[in-house]
Design a protein around this nucleic acid. Structure first.
Length: 422
DNA sequence: TGGGAAACT
DNA sequence: AGTTTCC
């Protein structure tokens, strides 16, 4: 049996733990640069649609709601607290995202009661409300979680049994857009074919769907029938390309600024390569003007820089990225976003030795690995960017705009919550 | 008016 | 290599 544990309105709940006045009120969390709404409390859901740009929220609604910048340092730390409890209780746990994990429930005599208890413990020790869905497949467990969140009397845990009498009814009530892996476009296409509910999809010709759409959707149908065929290995396999990019708080046409930004993205990309034990054989650097600035001239250049040999050494990747910036930069444009992508990624442990390609000599390679792992160890222990190449300019104008940021209550000594005793 | 990855064309 | 799709 598979369980899916999911934190309720996770970002909003994190904010409420440290600011209980927000309890019961409509609150929304904004994306980077305070752009659009990416998380909503239940109270906000009827007022503001998902992903609405903050500036498009009507003023009469805006004044009755609370908006906050995203505080990933807080959410990341709260996530660790929640899931370290989960992992203590259920050994076989697969973290899926910042607020979700799959659980393998094999050894529990009564999984529903077990998860209700786990839920109480998490609530008590972290303040975060969670729900658990239980079913034979991941797709059904997701649906079960959805039901657990809505159904009164579920006490936060719901078991969706394909053989139970309510199974058909539950799937008939569920629009296909709520199914894991089915987004807007796909639901529109399926809807045109007359498929609107999860129950209709479950009964459709899976093979035909596989041909017409994708194997992923075919598997979804099998999963709806209770046949487990989506493994999490599909999710935890190493990335084939790795992107780091960010919009600027304020546009810039200063090449020094752009070099700073690109150096940061290059370092992050190299770090990501190392954590999944990979090497890149090329990188892509891109810049772009503000695509919503209709009156300004647009420029979206990108360039692929091949690397001399497969590497995850920050120094090599920075050098290549800086060269990329120089080659695509034109000073008559004002840039709003920049990024670096790691390309042609290979496994560092079974690197193919091509007779014709250059490789580093073994000693250089060993020293590079030692330096990088020392760097990673220190940064992991002391916090990101404790050691970096060329320093971090925290006051640069391209830094994120985050005007509505709450405190980083759990990870900064100078931002701890203060309790007043009367 | 986000960031990221993969599939598709 | 650029576009679309999804989360």
């Amino acid at each position: 049996m598979i369980g899916l544990i999911d934190c309720n309105n996770f970002y909003a709940s994190c904010e409420r733990v440290f600011n209980p006045e927000l309890e019961g009120k409509p609150i929304g969390i904004l994306s980077n640069n305070d752009g659009c709404v990416i998380a909503r409390s239940n109270e906000l859901k009827p007022l503001v649609p998902m992903a609405m740009p903050a500036f498009k929220i009507p003023p009469h609604i805006k004044k009755q709601i609370t908006l906050l910048s995203s505080n990933y340092e807080l959410y990341g730390d709260m996530s660790q607290r929640v899931f370290s409890i989960v992992q203590d209780y259920i050994i076989d746990t697969e973290l899926y995202s910042i607020d979700e994990a799959f659980l393998h429930l094999q050894h529990q005599r009564n999984p529903v009661e077990y998860c209700r208890n786990l839920r109480k413990i998490i609530r008590q020790s972290t303040g975060i409300p969670v729900c658990v869905g239980i079913a034979p497949t991941r797709t059904l467990a997701k649906i079960a979680n959805h039901i657990a969140k809505k159904k009164v009397g579920s006490q936060g845990v719901y078991y969706l049994d394909p053989n139970a009498s309510d199974f058909i009814e539950q799937l008939e009530q569920l629009p296909i857009s709520e199914i894991w892996g089915i987004g807007r476009q796909l639901s529109a296409k399926l809807s045109n074919m007359g498929i609107r509910t999860a129950w209709q999809l479950r009964n459709f010709d899976a093979h035909f769907i596989g041909k017409q759409f994708s194997v992923v959707l075919e598997r979804t149908i099998l999963e709806l029938r209770g046949i487990a065929c989506i493994e999490l290995e599909d999710i935890h396999t190493p990335k084939k390309n790795i992107m780091t990019s960010r919009s600027f708080g304020k546009a810039t046409n200063n090449i020094d600024d752009l070099h700073d930004v690109i150096r940061l993205h290059a370092s992050r990309g190299a770090e990501k390569l190392r954590t999944q034990q990979s090497l890149a054989q090329a990188i892509l650097v891109f810049l772009r003007t503000n695509r919503f600035g209709e009156q300004q001239s647009q420029y979206h250049p990108s360039i692929v820089i091949p690397l001399l040999y497969p590497t995850n050494d920050t120094r090599h990747i920075i050098t290549a990225a800086q060269e990329g910036v120089c080659r695509i930069f034109k000073e008559d444009y004002s840039y709003q976003k920049a990024g670096v992508m790691m390309l042609d990624i290979v496994d560092q442990n079974k690197r193919q030795l091509d007779f014709f390609s250059q490789t580093e000599d073994t000693e250089t390679k060993t020293r590079s690995n030692q330096l990088m792992s020392t760097l990673d160890t220190i940064n992991k222990k002391m916090g990101r960017n404790t050691i970096s190449f060329g320093g971090i300019n925290t006051n640069a104008q391209w830094n994120l705009k985050r005007d509505l940021l709450s405190q980083r209550y759990t990870t900064r000594w100078d931002e701890l919550p203060v309790v007043k005793m009367m």
